[in-house]
Amino acid sequence: MFKARMRFSKTDEAAYISHLDLMHCMQRAIARAHLPVWYTEGFNPHIYISVALPLSTGYSGEWEFVDFNCTADEIPADAVQRLNAVMPSGLSVQEIYPLDDGGRKVRDIAYSKFEITWEFDGGVPEGFVDAANELFARDELKILKRSKRGEKEVNIRDYMRGITLEADRDCVRAYTILGAGNNNLSPEYLTKLILRELPQYAPDGATYHHLMVYDAQLNEFR
């Protein structure tokens, strides 16, 4: 038996599957695909899986991970294909690979890249992109950050590793690298910041798409 990692995307309808429900979805899909996986051995045997860096309900993402234990000598060559044939709409597996030496540890994850889409139903207002660029270039962007340990005032810039904006017809897409793992910053704070600092440009809606995860040296994590 060895540890294996599955990299998958979670988009469209599946964006609304919560973390706990996602675990059930994955367990059932693995059962349908008859993959050789390890079951827990208690009174209530179930497929052992763990999801790294769960996405908030409503976020989509394309660089997500599930770890499990493989009971065969190697991962079946058609495992990805078999799983994708039995997935709910919006969940799709890209690769499954063994974690030979234990693999990269989930705790090594330090950053996430997000695509934030700010929607403007009447078209992007003139001046918004410049104003937003100016806003995010400031050295100090104080926000009240909420965590399990309570509220705390922090400077967003300490959590951000760059941001670029791209304007489309009726939306602006922001690509930004934000702290993840122990130093997590929700991309929603960027929207809140716009609402606070640039209320004249308040977008009609915002969506969040998780593009990539990195370690502390900004190497792609997989």
């Binding site: 469209d12 309808e13 599946a14 609304y16 599957i17 919560s18 429900d21 979805c25 059932r28 899909a29 349908r32 309900t57 409503g58 039995v86 997935m87 709910p88 709409s89 919006g90 929607e119 009609d204 809606g205």
Partner: peptide, 17 residues
Amino acid sequence: RILPRVQKPARYVGGEW
């Protein structure tokens, strides 16, 4: 736009296996 504001939005999107 409304789904993130409601409880258990997965109930309203279909796409199940």
